[in-house]
Simulated scan of single mutants.
Amino acid sequence: MKSAPYDNIVFRDIDKSAALADTVSRKLNKLERYCGDIIRSRVVLEAPHQHKHKGKQYKASVELALSGNPVTITNESDSIHRAVNGAFSSVERCLKERGDRRKTRRYQVPTLEEPETE
């Protein structure tokens, strides 16, 4: 999944931050530890709208193209850093569960039906 440093990070309605882009890149590289079959990734960081009661809300979306099913996780928070951390922790949890399901499926022994004896 090695690509150019920040070409898969999209900033919408917020200023580009090298520190935030670096944090996202490190978290993307860390995801390879949990799942080696990531084909492509894209992270969208945005401040979609103003809420009257909640104040400014930020949204972080992580989209992963995997062999099999793609994964998209979105998290909203009043801080862009909290939104990024929440989204990536959810993605890590999802990839860990996916890996565990694969392992249990791989090591299940098929049961053979015994022929009936008379």
Rank of each mutant, 00 (worst) to 15 (best):
82 R>Q: 14
21 A>Q: 04
95 L>I: 07
103 K>C: 00
65 A>V: 12
4 A>P: 11
38 I>W: 05
65 A>R: 12
70 P>W: 02
63 E>N: 09
64 L>W: 02
20 L>M: 01
57 Q>V: 14
57 Q>M: 12
4 A>C: 08
84 V>G: 09
20 L>P: 01
107 Y>M: 11
97 E>L: 12
83 A>C: 15
26 R>S: 15
54 K>T: 07
42 R>M: 02
54 K>C: 05
39 I>G: 00
48 P>W: 04
17 S>V: 09
89 S>A: 14
48 P>I: 03
90 S>V: 10
93 R>F: 07
53 H>M: 04
93 R>C: 03
38 I>S: 04
56 K>Y: 01
65 A>H: 11
98 R>S: 05
50 Q>K: 11
46 E>A: 04
59 K>M: 13
32 E>C: 09
12 R>W: 04
58 Y>S: 02
60 A>V: 04
88 F>K: 13
87 A>D: 14
16 K>L: 05
66 L>H: 11
42 R>A: 02
25 S>C: 08
62 V>A: 07
39 I>N: 00
87 A>R: 08
32 E>S: 09
41 S>T: 08
65 A>D: 13
30 K>H: 15
68 G>C: 06
89 S>H: 14
22 D>L: 10
106 R>D: 00
50 Q>P: 03
1 M>K: 06
48 P>D: 02
51 H>W: 00
22 D>M: 05
104 T>I: 06
83 A>Q: 13
65 A>T: 14
8 N>G: 11
41 S>C: 03
34 Y>T: 02
105 R>G: 12
23 T>H: 15
93 R>S: 14
93 R>G: 13
11 F>W: 12
19 A>Q: 07
77 S>T: 02
49 H>N: 05
103 K>M: 02
31 L>I: 08
7 D>K: 08
28 L>M: 12
45 L>G: 03
53 H>L: 06
43 V>C: 08
30 K>Y: 14
53 H>W: 07
97 E>D: 13
12 R>F: 07
47 A>S: 09
38 I>E: 06
54 K>Q: 10
70 P>I: 01
60 A>L: 05
81 H>V: 13
19 A>W: 04
90 S>W: 05
95 L>S: 07
